[in-house]
Design a protein around this nucleic acid. Structure first.
Lengths: 340, 340
DNA sequence: GACACTTGCTCAAACGTTTGTGCAAACGCT
DNA sequence: AGCGTTTGCACAAACGTTTGAGCAAGTGTC
C-alpha cells in the first residue's frame, strides 16, 4: 500500500468520479441516481483497498466531527471514572465517538482542553467538575457548541449535579440513627467555598438541627488533602479523648487521610462509633469498623446530561440527581461494577 | 459574533491576505518576511476576534492532528485510570493533545475505537489491554500510524507490559514468608489462557517450587467474576475446613468476590492466614486481615511506551516493567495519588 | 540609468470530502 | 423525426488551513 487510500484512488480504480464514490459510500447513491452495478463495483473496490474515510476532511466539509467530548478533573477517581464509562455508552448510543480528557483541576488546562476539543469541532461537550465554568462556557458559546456541565454547576449552560444537600441529610440521618443516643456528630473535610461542600454542610446542619442537635463548632472544613485530614482527626481525637460519636467525612481523599490515623487505633477505640463518607469505595465499605457511604449516580448524571443535549437545552437550568446511601458492609445494587 | 471566525475574516479586517495571517499566527512570519507592524496588527485583530484555528483544516493540510490517543478496556479501574493519568501527562509534555477511549474489552469496539482515532489522524496511539492485537495493529499499519501496546503484548508493534512473572514470584515469596511454616499457598482467579494470568501462574509455580513446595492442584483459575470467585473460595474453605494458609488472588475483581465471603467469617478464622492480591487498592490494604498487594507501575509503563514512540520503534520488542509490592497496612510510596 | 538584490507581501494549489448543478445519452411518445 | 423526460453520471466549488512560488516596489551598486 502506498499512502492512505482516498476517495480519488477508489474513483480511479472504479472508473468513476469522486462524487460517485462518495455518494455510494455514504449510501446516498439512490438519491443521486447511481446505478446498482456502479454502486456495487465501487463498494467492492473500496472494501478491497481497505478504504477508510478521512474524518478530518469530512468534518471540515460538514462543520461537525462526530465526536463527543467529556472533560473531567482527573481519571484517577472512582466517581469520574464512572462518569467516563457512562459517558461513552451514551455517546455511542447516539452514534457519536466519545473521547475523554482530564485537566488536573487546573483552570488553564481546562480551557485548553475545551478549546482543543472545540477546535476539533466536537458535536457535544460534557464538562464535569469544572473549575472555570465561565471560561469554559464562553469558549463553547463562541464556538456555538452544545455543552452541559456535570457534577458542579456551570454558568450560562444547563448543569446536572448530585443532590449533595439531600445526600448529606440522608448520610447524617444514618449516622445519627446508628450512634449512641445524645452523641455528637462531626463534619470533616472540604472547603466551605466549594459548591458541593457548602451543600453538604447545609445538609449536615439541617439534619442535625432537625434532631435538636447543634452542629456549631463541629464542622472542620480542612480541605481535601489526606495529610491535612490525618492531622485534623488526630488532633480531634486528642481533644475529645477518643473518636467522635459520629464522623461525617466529606470525600474519599479525606477518608484516606482519616484512615491513616484510624488504623493506628486499637479495636476498642471504635466501640459505639460510626463513620460516614460522602463517596463510595467498595473496599472502604468492608473495613474493621462500620462505614456508611454515599455513592453518586454516575450513570444517572450522565443520562440527564445527554437528555439535556438531546433537547438542545440552553438555559442555566440545574438538575439534581439523588445519590445512593450504601449501609456498612453492604454490596450496593450494582455490585463492584466499577472495579474492573 | 456570526459564525466561527476564520483566517479569512482576520485577513479582511487586517487588510492582509490569508497566507499572511497564517504566517503570523504560526510564528513563521520572520521567515516569510512579514513586517513587524503587520504581524502585530494581525495578532491584535486575531486576539480581539477570539480567533481559534480550525484544527480539522490544519490537520487535513498537515496530515497530522496533534492528537495522541489512548485506547483501554475500561475507565473504571484503578490501574487503567492510572494509565490514563500518566498518558495525558506524557502526551502533553510532547505538545500533543491526549484523548482517551475505552472499549469494554470488546474486540469489535476496539477496532472501531482505533479506526476512529486513526481516521482523525492521531499522531500516536497507545493501546492498553488489547483484546485484538492483530486487528488493531493492522489498522495502525495501514494508516502508517505510530503505535505501542501496553499491559498486554501486541503483535507487530512494540509492547510494554508489567513483569507479571516477577511480580507473582515476589508476591508468592511474601505470602510464604508470612504464612505458618509448612503451610500451603493457593492461587485463585484468572483464565490460564490469558497472557497475564499464565505469567502469574508461572511465577507462583516457580516460587513455590523454589521453596520445595508443590503447587499442583492448588491453582484455581476460575475466571474474573466476583460471583464465581466467591463460590470458589467458599467451596475451598469448606473443603479445607477453613481458610487456606496463604491465598494468592489474581485480580482485584476476584478479590472483591473473595471478600464477599471473607466478611462472613469470624475474626478468629483469619488467625495465621495471609492473603495476597495481584492488584492494588488503597482501602483493601486496610481490611481486618493482612493483605499483601501488587501495585502496577502505571507511570513507568506509560513512560516506556512514550520512549518507544519517541524513537519510532517498530519491531515486536517487549519491555517488562516491574510492579511494586505493597506490604499489608502500608501506604505505598505515592500515597493515595490515584484516589482523587 | 541599468542591474541585482532585498523587502513585503499576494496567489493559487493542495489536503480529502460533500453536494448543487449540469450535461449527454437513452428512452418514450406522438 | 422531433420533442420531453428520465437515467446515470461528472464537474466544480466549498470547508479552513498551509506553503511553494511569484511579483511589485524599494534600495544599493556601478
Amino acid at each position: 500500500m502506498r499512502d492512505k487510500t482516498t476517495i480519488k484512488d477508489i474513483a480511479r480504480l472504479a472508473e468513476a468520479s469522486p462524487s460517485t464514490v462518495s455518494a455510494v459510500l455514504n449510501d446516498t447513491w439512490q438519491g443521486r441516481r447511481i446505478s446498482a452495478e456502479t454502486a456495487e463495483r465501487v463498494r467492492r473496490i473500496a472494501l478491497a483497498q481497505g478504504y477508510r474515510a478521512n474524518l478530518q476532511a469530512r468534518g471540515l466539509r460538514h462543520g461537525r466531527s462526530g465526536l463527543a467530548g467529556l472533560v473531567l478533573p482527573l481519571h484517577d477517581n472512582r466517581f469520574f471514572a464512572g462518569l467516563s464509562q457512562a459517558f461513552e455508552a451514551e455517546a455511542r448510543a447516539r452514534g457519536l465517538s466519545p473521547v475523554v480528557v482530564s485537566t488536573r483541576r487546573d483552570p488553564e488546562e481546562e480551557r485548553r482542553a475545551v478549546g482543543t476539543l472545540l477546535a476539533h469541532a466536537v458535536d457535544a461537550l460534557v464538562i464535569a467538575g469544572t473549575c472555570d465554568p465561565a471560561g469554559s462556557h464562553r469558549l463553547c458559546a463562541e464556538a456555538r457548541a452544545a455543552h452541559v456541565f456535570v457534577d458542579l454547576p456551570g454558568i450560562g449552560a444547563p448543569s446536572v449535579v448530585s443532590d449533595n444537600r439531600g445526600g448529606a441529610e440522608r448520610l447524617t440521618a444514618a449516622l445519627m440513627d446508628a450512634m449512641r443516643p445524645g452523641g455528637s456528630p462531626w463534619f470533616l473535610g472540604g472547603r466551605p467555598g466549594d459548591h458541593a461542600t457548602a451543600e453538604r454542610i447545609a445538609g449536615f446542619r439541617a439534619e442535625t438541627a432537625r434532631r435538636g442537635c447543634d452542629s456549631a463548632g463541629r464542622i472542620i472544613a480542612c480541605g481535601y488533602t489526606p495529610a491535612r485530614a490525618r492531622a485534623e482527626i488526630a488532633a480531634l481525637c486528642d481533644r475529645l479523648g477518643g473518636l467522635p460519636d459520629a464522623l461525617f467525612v466529606n470525600s474519599i481523599m479525606v477518608f484516606a487521610g482519616v484512615l491513616e490515623h484510624l488504623v493506628t487505633l486499637p479495636p476498642e477505640a471504635f466501640a459505639g462509633r460510626v463513620v460516614g463518607c460522602y463517596d463510595y469505595d467498595p473496599f472502604a465499605a468492608f473495613l474493621q469498623f462500620p462505614v456508611h457511604m454515599i455513592r453518586q449516580d454516575a450513570a444517572g448524571l450522565i443520562g440527564e446530561a445527554f437528555r439535556l443535549l438531546d433537547r438542545d437545552a440552553r438555559g442555566s437550568e440545574v438538575i439534581a440527581v439523588p445519590p445512593e446511601l450504601v449501609p456498612p458492609r453492604t454490596i450496593p445494587q450494582n455490585p463492584f461494577a466499577d472495579l474492573g
